[in-house]
Amino acid sequence: MSLIGTTVLPFATTAYKEGKFVPITDADTRGKWAVFFFYPADFTFVCPTELEDLADAYPTLQKMGVEVYSVSTDTHFSHKAWHDTSPAIGKINYYMLGDQNHVISNNFQILREGQGLADRGTFVVDPDGVIQLIEVTSEGVGRNAQELLRKIKAAQYIAAHPGEVCPAKWEEGEETLAPSLDLVGKI
């Protein structure tokens, strides 16, 4: 069953952010757009390349009113150790959530059964806590922050413009569509 259109379920955890351990709950993620960026584990191979790519895009996301929460089933202590030892992870200024009890991974239905690791999944959540976008890739397929930015811009656009939709490869400033009977069979 798809989680699109559902509300983020309750959770409480500790995150590592900018040299501090901070408590985070689902309520803290409301009121602005949010990205929940799940990855299998700290100290791995594809994960740091994705997290660094997202760190590079983080200032742009912040300007768009988007907060980022990376999530793995590691602890916040592990996140700190990784942040302190990896040049790629050392660039991260967004929240790194610990999910050792698997509540968040289970809430987003991204936990690998019997393995205790999250799949590589991205969830874009609107300010009301409703999931608007989901992307899940296999273990070896890394994600692209620029494509995520494009999708968030499209989600923000349609949220602000009810009755319009963004066609394939839509970029900010391009034309959208207004679905109607007049368009049926004309595209």
Rank of each mutant, 00 (worst) to 15 (best):
D119A: 11
D128N: 09
I89H: 07
Y69D: 01
V124L: 04
N144G: 07
D119K: 07
I92M: 14
L9P: 00
T73A: 07
K63V: 01
H102P: 01
S86N: 08
E172S: 13
H79K: 05
T49A: 14
L133G: 00
T6P: 02
A81T: 02
R150D: 09
W170T: 07
Q115D: 09
E52R: 15
V22S: 03
A27K: 15
E147R: 12
L61H: 02
P127N: 08
L177I: 13
Y69E: 02
A81D: 12
T75Y: 13
N93Y: 03
G163Q: 09
D182E: 15
W170M: 10
L117C: 10
M64H: 06
G98L: 09
E174T: 09
V184P: 00
D74I: 13
Q115E: 15
A15Q: 11
T85C: 02
C166A: 15
I110Y: 00
I152R: 01
F108V: 06
G140S: 14
L149T: 08
V103G: 10
D84C: 00
I4L: 15
A118T: 01
A55V: 09
Q109Y: 01
T49W: 08
I158N: 05
M64P: 04
K186W: 00
P87K: 09
F37C: 07
M1D: 13
E171D: 03
T29H: 02
T60D: 11
E147S: 11
T7I: 10
T49S: 14
E52N: 14
K17C: 11
V22Q: 02
E50M: 06
D56P: 01
T14A: 08
A145M: 11
G31L: 05
F108R: 06
L148H: 01
G65I: 04
D28N: 15
Y39Q: 04
A160P: 01
S105D: 03
A154P: 01
